[in-house]
């Protein structure tokens, strides 16, 4: 019998639940020891535009789902990832991680999804409040998702880093556009496949690959992006992003200030960082002047 020819995977990008090639048609070849590993899309400004549009369209229904339901959907990603461990193991090793560390990274990634999935219906009970006011109002504060959040994923942690950047953002009802690690993009697209096969609605997670320096500023300038979650070592690019973000007063969260590798990352504050507080003054009958209570 003749030798079987291996079927190589085509790594595309993830927009609106689909896997298109980049609109620009540009590719770069990923190599290891001069052996080609894969062709990776060099996405363009138009891919960014399409991704933001898809995230915007997905926002209303995703943010209106019950928190409990979002929690279930995220849990499902973890389930799917658990069943696809081998693929990620292979890719992490291809990208230069030793096998022990790779196994650890995958387990940590799955656990992290489970951890943040649990916060979906607990964020508001913890951080929301009923506020004492000196008038006849029932005054309360709740946290709401911000809208479309653009994420620049960390360079050196291709799976755990991306998951840790996306999951705490979408758990509250935001939708995302992420730029994957430039050097290590393989896991990002495989993660997109896992997400696509789980119950996450189209457009909630969008992932593009390519050059950060080219792509990231477009996200910072885009008027329909509400917040940025940045993992950037390049100081010049980071400053540029922060500057451009002022255009429509985007919130900028520096995710790299948290240590993604460690379990201390697992805290609700990162979720809260991508939410907006809304305070409501609800008139009530009580006439506070006649009582000594507020």
């Amino acid at each position: 019998m003749s030798k079987r020819i291996k079927i190589l995977k085509t790594y595309k990008i993830f927009i609106d639940g689909k896997f298109p090639r980049t609109e620009s048609g540009r590719y770069t070849q990923l190599k290891k020891d001069n052996i080609p590993l894969a062709n990776v899309c060099l996405s363009s400004k138009k891919d960014i535009k399409n991704a933001v549009l898809s995230a915007r369209n997905a926002f209303e229904s995703w943010s209106n789902k019950s928190a409990y339901n979002r929690s279930q959907v995220l849990y499902r990603i973890a389930e799917m990832l658990e069943g696809n461990k081998n693929q990620f193991l292979e890719e992490l090793i291809l990208q230069g991680v030793d096998s022990k560390k790779a196994i650890l990274e995958i387990d940590q990634s799955i656990d992290r999804i489970i951890y943040f999935a649990g916060w979906a219906d607990k964020i508001n009970p913890i951080f929301g409040s009923v506020n004492p006011v000196a008038s006849s109002h029932f005054n309360f504060t709740i946290l709401e998702p911000m809208g479309v959040v653009a994420i620049v994923a960390p360079e050196d942690s291709s799976l755990l880093g991306l998951i840790s950047s996306i999951i705490p953002v979408i758990v509250s009802g935001n939708t995302t556009v992420s730029i994957a690690s430039e050097k290590l993009p393989l896991c990002a697209i495989s993660l997109a496949e896992v997400i696509s096969n789980s119950d996450v609605p189209n457009g909630v997670v969008n992932i593009v690959t390519g050059e950060k320096e080219e792509l990231a500023p477009h996200l910072a300038q885009h008027m329909d992006v509400n917040a940025l979650g940045l993992n950037l070592e390049n100081k010049v690019l980071k400053d540029k992003m922060v500057f451009e973000a002022t255009n429509n007063l985007k919130r900028v969260v520096d995710i790299s200030q948290y240590n993604i590798q460690e379990s201390e990352f697992e805290a609700p504050y990162i979720v809260k960082n991508f939410m907006e507080a809304k305070t409501t003054w609800h008139p009530i009958e009580k006439d506070f002047t006649s009582s000594n209570k507020y």
């Binding site: 535009k49 933001v52 300038q221 885009h222 008027m223 329909d224 255009n247 429509n248």
Partner: peptide, 9 residues
């Protein structure tokens, strides 16, 4: 402007 716009404005 060179920037993509939002319906909100």
């Amino acid at each position: 402007t060179g920037f993509y716009q939002s319906n909100n404005y």
